[in-house]
């Protein structure tokens, strides 16, 4: 009984979120937020380099010149957002320390 009530509640929750989601642009549309200021189709192609407002467009065009790597995502996470990855490594280190402190055996007193 209690389980069926929970299933109905979460089904209602899913339906509400689906109704919200149906108002978004479809998948693959260039009007999505990352490319919201990407080049509209009516702009002539000689004015295109001045329209590179979006940061995604900037990364896609200039990462090979700025960083030198071919993979755009590696350039983004290691150079443009290098502090992010550095503290992500710190987070991993902290997680390992916490796991060893919680359930690890003390290897120094064997």
């Amino acid at each position: 009984m209690k389980r069926s009530v929970a299933v109905i509640l979460f089904a209602v929750f899913a339906v509400c979120m689906i109704v919200v989601v149906l108002h978004l642009y479809p998948v693959g549309d260039p009007r999505l937020p990352g490319y919201a200021d990407f080049i509209p189709a009516e702009i002539p192609s000689e004015e295109i380099p001045r329209r590179a407002d979006s940061v995604a467009t900037y990364y896609n065009r200039n990462s090979a010149r700025d960083v030198g790597g071919t993979c755009v995502i590696a350039s983004v996470i290691l150079d443009y957002r290098g502090y992010d990855t550095l503290y992500e490594a710190t987070v991993l280190f902290t997680a390992v320390i916490a796991c060893l402190a919680l359930i690890g055996k003390d290897h120094h007193h064997e």
């Binding site: 090979a64 960083v67 030198g68 790597g69 071919t70 590696a74 350039s75 290691l78 150079d79």
Partner: peptide
Amino acid sequence: PGGLFGGGTLIPIT
């Protein structure tokens, strides 16, 4: 760019 050491500091960081 595209080579193994084309990325500057990317390779030591990686």
